[in-house]
Design a protein around this nucleic acid. Structure first.
Length: 1041
RNA sequence: GCUCGAGUGGUGGAAUUGGUAGACACGUUGGACUUAAAAUCCAAUGGGUAGUAAUGCCCGUACGGGUUCAAGUCCCGUCUCGAGUACCA
């Protein structure tokens, strides 16, 4: 084989790696360990496109590099295979999601006969060094039985704020037995009942269980949830984008439901502080910090008759500025405190608010609305009456759902007070800032300003301790205490879906009971349809065998009416359950006795390099940190953070091709009224065919309306263009002709209208963009007329503008997706250029973290490099490498490349090492180098990036072992040492020419040599040297004048 | 609105602690080989300008200032684009 044949080489080595299990990682080794992990893919039916493997290639390069560097590398892959798309497909086709998921992973044919390549096959073709023996799938019972076990662990735990860790619930029970709720500082809801040891011991079993439920880290609660009627399920906040569901874009409403919750809020502080030590992009940490949303302040109680209204404030020091209070319309006290006179107004407002969707409320921030309840609370310090309002700018879900309004220092309160100024219940704004004018706006910069009208706080400011003094006073009078609030809410954990982990829970007397761990997994039951039941129960409500027998300890038929049979939970777990702990399962993936052994976890510790998209910032990355902290507290793992170093790869964008459909219209120049389809203009001009035109021809032949300043590409169709020539031809005879030809479709009224010279109608065009499937393009951007007949996106009855047979498409960069017809499959690239070229090219596109458009045009350069690399080891007759010593130049090329590649991988700068490979191969070709001394280490150098060709060359070089563990070449400085250096010689900082000067001379000598130079003298002629800067090895600069 | 990030040739992008801006690749142009095409190889390629030429000169890293012998890099201000977030009391 003399030419580079990527197909046979790649097939050969992929098979070799698979049969020899080349990349199998061992759990005991003398080598240092390295764990590189990619974010769990969801195996969709659309398959991989070239954007997906980007991160996998990067982690694979690092993994292979670390093996060369002598590490024991764990580089696993698996599937987050529970999820909504498979379920929706199941609803549509009736196919079991397990089947479609299997097909999507392993390949096959879908229900409509489309061939599915399968994620696994697609990945195998790219030559990843995954240890496939450790593959996990979240939807496999062997895996999810441990997800169920972790749920039980959460149920069996409570959060002890004093120890600042999760503790077994048995510990809480024994403390209750001994001393009741005394000295218990647990993460729970506010205001739980207190009891003594004697009371506890007197409670019935059921009562005790009910109380414990309030403390558990996963608990049942009636919560207002985001209910999506179209999907028949509840969505988490991060599954809603702009008020509609992330998947499908369905509307979302609020509804109260009994749900399993996760007490992630107990971990808020640790999740926040834990971020500090992580080597993550600052932006991701910032997103998590915002999401956790810590604010320090105080709880303040206002007495209102027999009621107590609690508010949270970050500025208790402004307490004397309280002018009124506002409650969320949903606040539970509203009905009780509203006076008879205000009842109607309050009811009407509550109704109006409830009718507005969450989305409307969020979008409409500017409108101020609210109603006075008629009630007055008592100021805890001044005892003055404080009017109580309701308003939807106060969110029911944050803090206590009530605020003390301090208009002099808060913009929203100020706006509210001003809007209702003069009405009943809205007193004049109290100003507590000394010497500050608040007649125009609230005083935002209040931190340093001394307070006035504030009793004991007068003269103090926020910065000089007013806050602490206020809290102290409030505590003294029993009306408040210091408190830290978090925006982070407890996470809803129940989903009304089929394709997820079942809960290991049955219900006895309405109380949830955990099934013993030894009976897991509780396998997903079969159902006849994947939809909610008639009466609104989740899909599992359709299962006929879905009850738990406590005697036999197994799932039995619902018809079984023995006393020991209880109904099982009908909800399933959300998508993030399985992905929150999978990184540990990989450490010991085939363990049948436990989720992973302590020894395996201790050996692999945590993930050294995690690569994936930044879209998981508030979902997966936060929840898995939460679960790991729990596993840590319960002694299950030795680490508290799962992902030490993370890199977020940028999205690869697709280029969508467009042509434009011409739509002719008449427009009156005076009134700008346009008349289109009803006149039959299209029929007359184009014989009722669609006419397509390209953007360049629009720009060439049509003139944009003068009234339009500039047009963005995507807006091109919103404006009229007109053809200058056609405009000229629009005299009366044209319209007579028009009328004759299209008698039927033109009314007399329209005809009179457009032929009336005073009205001055002209012909104009709109251009509507039409997508073109990428595979119909020739030479990248040419659309030929013959392919339109088979296109799904363009009208079959068509012609091109001016009867052209082909036109040039224009492009827009968009997200790569099946629905946009701009997907490029890695399989096609592997066919045409090979996996090594694909790997190199994906890296060559630019920095890993940056989003970039995929443009196949540049790939030929990388393919050319592969061929040149191959040719270095071959002559016309075949493989040819000499054992002669390499030239110093070649050694220099080799060693500078070693250094560069090493530095680049350490900095995750993969694009620059591809360049340096190209430079090396270009130089070695130039030098006609074919010495083993250089070519052997070069193969190892290239191997992480282009492993197939490297293996092939390695074996041609006479090695029987795989290249994968060959030691990485050692960089030796001595090959780079030179006797001279090319100095840039500049004058006043501007480089004029370069000089080759010796390296090993002193600064003074250097200066003498430079000054002796003829060119330097020429430059200096007639000028004076003011200063000479010589930086040895860098630059020579003369300041002249 | 707030927070963060980014603006470099026709294109993707290089440029270590401030030290030769545009590496590498695509594209384009010209040439060699070929009946032709593909492939391959060679040369040129930021803009302007003077010269027959060798070779000069000027301008250039979004825009306006500043620090420095020297700024894509540091500082101040402005603009544009992208991402995240959104009544959080």
């Amino acid at each position: 084989m003399t030419h580079y044949d990527h197909k046979s080489i790649e097939a050969k080595w992929q098979k070799h790696w698979a049969t020899n299990k080349t990349f199998k990682a061992t759990n005991n080794s003398d080598k240092p360990k390295f764990y590189a992990l990619d974010m769990f893919p969801y195996p969709s039916g659309a398959g991989l496109h070239v954007g997906h493997p980007l991160g996998y290639i990067a982690s694979d390069i690092v993994s292979r590099y670390k093996r060369h560097k002598g590490f024991n590398v764990l580089h696993p892959m698996g599937y987050d295979s529970f999820g909504l798309p498979a379920e929706q497909y199941a609803i549509q086709t009736g196919q079991h999601p397990a089947e479609t998921t299997k097909t999507n992973i392993e390949g096959g044919t879908d229900k409509s006969g489309n061939k599915i390549a399968g994620y696994r096959n697609q990945m195998d073709r790219i030559g990843f060094s995954f240890d496939w023996d450790r593959e996990v799938r979240t939807s496999s019972p062997d895996y999810y039985k441990y997800t169920q076990e972790i749920f039980i662990m959460l149920f069996d735990s409570w959060y002890d704020n004093d120890a600042d860790k999760a503790q077994p619930i048995s510990l809480l029970e024994s403390r209750f037995r001994e001393s009741g709720t005394n000295n218990i500082n647990a993460a729970t809801e506010e205001d739980l009942r207190h009891f003594t040891a004697a009371e506890w011991n007197a409670f019935t079993e059921k009562e005790q269980q009910e109380i414990l439920l309030d403390y558990r880290l996963t608990f049942l609660a009636d919560t207002e949830v985001n209910w999506c009627p179209a999907l028949g399920t509840v969505l988490a906040n991060d599954e809603i984008v702009n008020g509609v569901s992330e998947r499908g874009g369905h509307p979302v409403v609020r509804k109260k439901m009994r749900q399993w919750m996760m007490r992630i809020s107990a971990f808020a502080e640790r999740l926040l502080t834990g971020l500090e030590g992580l080597d993550w992009a600052e932006s991701i940490k910032e997103i998590q910090r915002n999401w956790i949303g810590k604010s320090v302040g105080a709880m303040v109680s206002f007495q209102l008759d027999s009621h107590k209204v609690d508010v949270f404030t970050t500025r208790p020091d402004t307490i004397y500025g309280v002018t009124f209070m506002t409650l969320a319309p949903e606040h539970e006290l509203v009905d009780q405190i509203t006076t008879a006179a205000q009842k109607d107004a309050v009811e009407a407002y509550k109704k109006a608010t409830a009718a507005r969707s969450e989305r409307e409320r969020m979008a409409d921030v500017k409108t101020i609305s609210g109603v006075f309840t008629g009630a007055y609370a008592t100021h805890p310090l001044s005892s003055e009456p404080v009017p109580v309002w309701i308003g939807d700018y106060v969110l029911a879900g944050y803090g206590t759902g009530a605020v003390m309004a301090v208009p002099c220092g808060d913009e929203r309160d100020y706006a509210f007070a001003n809007y209702f100024a003069g009405q009943e219940g809205m007193p004049a704004i109290k100003n507590i800032f000394d010497g500050v004018d608040i007649s125009e706006e609230a005083y935002g910069a209040k931190d340093k300003t001394p307070l006035c009208n504030s009793d004991f706080l007068n003269g103090m400011s926020y910065q000089t301790g007013a806050m602490a003094a206020a809290i102290e006073k409030l505590e003294e009078v029993g009306s408040g205490k210091g408190k830290t609030n978090y925006r982070l809410r407890d996470a809803v954990f129940s989903r009304q879906r089929y394709w997820g982990e079942p809960f290991p829970v049955y219900y006895k007397d309405g109380l949830p009971q955990m099934i013993d761990r030894k009976h897991l997994p509780i396998a997903l039951p079969e159902v006849d349809e994947y939809l909610p039941t008639e009466d609104g129960a989740p899909p599992l409500g359709r299962a006929t065998t879905w009850s738990w027998c406590t005697k036999e300890n197994k799932v039995v038929s619902n018809d079984d009416d023995r006393d020991c049979v209880y109904p099982l939970e009908l909800n399933t777990m959300p998508g993030w359950a399985g992905s929150s702990w999978y990184m540990f399962r990989y450490m010991d993936a085939n363990n049948e006795d436990e989720m992973f052994s302590a020894a395996a976890q201790e050996y692999w510790n945590n993930v050294d390099l995690y690569i994936g998209g930044s879209e998981h910032a508030t979902g997966h990355l936060l929840y898995s940190r939460f679960w790991v902290k729990l596993l840590h507290d319960l002694g299950k793992v030795t680490v508290e953070e799962p992902f030490q170093k993370m890199i977020n790869q940028g999205m690869i964008l697709g280029e969508s091709a467009f042509v434009y459909r011409m739509v002719p219209m008449f427009e009156c120049q005076k009134t700008k009224v346009s008349l289109g389809g009803t006149l039959g203009v299209n029929e007359f001009l184009f014989g009722n065919r669609e006419v397509y035109i390209s953007k360049d021809l629009i720009e060439r032949d049509f003139v944009l309306d003068k009234s339009v300043k500039s047009v963005k590409d995507e807006d091109i169709y919103k404006h009229f263009y007109y053809s200058a020539d056609l405009h000229k031809a629009l005299d009366k005879s044209y319209f007579d002709d028009f009328k004759k030809k299209s008698e039927k479709s033109i009314t007399k009224k329209s005809y009179d209208l457009i032929t009336n010279p005073e009205k001055d109608f002209v012909l104009k065009y709109k251009f509507f963009p039409a997508r073109v499937e990428n595979n119909f393009l020739k030479n990248g951007n040419i659309l030929k007329s013959e392919v339109i007949g088979v296109s799904k996106l363009l009208f079959a009855d068509f012609e091109f503008y001016n009867q052209l047979t082909e036109i040039k498409c224009s492009f827009e960069v968009e997200k790569m997706s099946k629905s946009k017809y701009n997907v490029v499959s890695p399989d096609d690239i592997c066919d045409q250029y090979g996996a090594d070229t694909l790997r190199l090219y994906e890296m060559f596109l630019g920095p890993l973290e940056q989003a970039k458009p995929w443009n196949t045009a540049g790939i030929t350069g990388v393919y050319g490099f592969m061929k040149k690399l191959w040719k270095l080891y071959h002559n016309d007759a075949g493989f040819s490498v000499s054992d002669e010593k390499a030239s110093p130049d070649s050694m220099k090329t080799l060693h500078k490349t070693i250094k560069k590649v090493q530095d680049d991988i350490d900095n995750f700068s993969f694009n620059t090492s591809v360049s340096s490979f190209m430079i090396a191969v270009n130089e070695l070709t130039q030098q006609k180098c074919n010495s083993r001394e250089v070519l052997e280490p070069l193969a190892v150098l290239v191997s992480p990036y282009a492993p197939h060709i490297a293996e092939e060359l390695w074996s041609l070089l006479g090695h029987n072992e795989s290249i994968s563990e060959a030691p990485f070449p050692v960089f030796d400085e001595k090959h780079l040492v030179e006797s001279s250096k090319t100095y840039p010689i500049s004058f006043n900082g501007k480089m004029k020419f370069t000089l080759d000067l010796p390296v090993d001379v002193s600064k003074d000598e250097l200066e003498k040599m430079v000054l002796a130079n003829e060119k330097v003298q020429q430059q200096l002629e007639g000028k004076q040297i003011r200063k000479t800067i010589i930086v040895p090895g860098k630059i020579v600069n003369f300041v002249v004048g």
